[in-house]
């Protein structure tokens, strides 16, 4: 199995790096500063595969057992 296949694992939700504009929009929508968002480390295997950098905001589309699909945001921080 190649490294990329972990993205297709059933436990791994869909990850997407947000552009500068999108992150600005999300932050103003949620009315938070990036350091108040949930975090994920830059050594996280998924972060390494999608190529997110420290400071990026990652949009995670989860399968929710109660609400269909939900969006969650994590900011990448150094280990």
């Amino acid at each position: 199995m190649s490294e990329k296949d972990i993205l297709s694992h059933e436990l791994v939700s869909e990850h997407k790096i947000l552009t500068k504009n999108e992150s600005q929009k999300i932050l103003s929508q949620l009315n938070v500063k990036p350091d108040r968002l949930p975090k994920m480390r830059d050594t996280d295997p998924v972060v390494e595969i999608i190529g997110a950098k420290v400071g990026d905001i990652v949009e995670i589309t989860r399968d929710s057992p109660t609400a269909g699909k939900t969006k969650y945001y994590r900011v990448v921080i150094p280990e």
Binding site: M1, D5, S8, V12, R41, D44, P45, V46, R74
Partner: peptide, 21 residues
């Protein structure tokens, strides 16, 4: 089937598949 294999060791899952997993 690499997409369905599971472990009950949560730390191992975090290390191999990431924090969301």
């Amino acid at each position: 089937d690499a997409s369905r294999i599971t472990s009950n060791n949560i730390f191992e899952v975090a290390k191999v598949l990431g924090i969301e997993a």
